[in-house]
Design a protein around this nucleic acid. Structure first.
Length: 227
DNA sequence: GCGACAG
DNA sequence: ATCTTGTCGC
């Protein structure tokens, strides 16, 4: 299966322009299930080197049923945009797109380290990446950007809706007992219900779902070899 | 003005 | 995210 074409990216914009772009793209996000059978799931994680001047993106594609790695790719790129809460995609998407371009096969769904629509303008990096590449994505963040939620039971699979401005924008999900919950939200073309189910099916006794855990691991192990 | 604030 | 070793706890 050929890779979808990826549009050229105007990432070198001002924070003001970036916000305007988010307002423009938010309506393209599809919040319902619009995906086929899931055979492969991928996780993408971004790390930094050289004091934050260089970004490193790692993508690991795994077999959904066995959760075994099928392909791992890596990309590095000089950072051009600062870290500003709410504008993460403008900092990390360039290097992520370069890593995705190396894949020989597109995954059926992509788990992204960050928020989906659980974002002030409903276009977190998972959603931005999803609509940009037109692929199903799910946002899985280790901490909260916006919204509030009731305490989550300390039991794997337990979750509570995340509310922001009167609407459910995601969920705080306990992937395993004894650890802080992760924040799951719709990225693109995947409903929240499916997203939660997907993340739990990828849970392997760790806080982070296997695709993201392995992507993070792959990136850091490379960090050492490189150093 | 003060506090919050994905990675 | 990153700078950083050992250490407390299940």
């Amino acid at each position: 299966m050929p890779l979808p074409s990826i549009p050229p990216h105007p990432w070198d914009v001002s924070p003001e322009a970036a916000m305007a772009i988010q307002h423009q793209w938010r309506e393209r996000v599809i919040r319902e299930d619009y995906l086929g059978e899931i055979r492969t799931v991928a996780g993408v994680d971004v790390g930094f080197e050289d004091g934050g001047r260089v970004a490193r993106a790692a993508v690991v594609v795994l077999d959904f049923s066995a959760l075994e790695p099928r392909q791992k790719v890596l990309a590095r790129k000089v950072v051009t945009f600062p870290y500003i809460p709410g504008l993460l995609s403008f900092r990390e998407m360039p290097v992520i797109l370069e890593s995705l371009a190396q894949l020989s096969e597109w995954p059926d769904v992509l788990l992204v380290d960050g928020q989906g629509i659980a974002h002030p303008r409903r276009l977190g990096i998972a959603s931005h990446l999803g609509v940009w590449c037109d692929i199903p994505t799910v946002g899985v963040a280790k901490s909260r950007l916006v919204g509030q939620h009731a305490p989550v039971e300390d039991r794997p699979g337990a979750w509570q809706p995340l509310y922001d401005q009167g609407e459910v924008v995601g969920a705080a999900l306990r992937t395993r007992s004894g650890v802080k919950p992760v924040y799951v939200s719709i990225g693109h073309r995947v409903s929240l219900e499916t997203a939660l189910d997907l993340v739990m099916r990828c849970a392997r006794g760790f806080r982070l779902p296997e695709p993201l855990r392995l992507a993070h691991q792959f990136a850091s192990q490379f960090e050492k070899v490189q150093k």
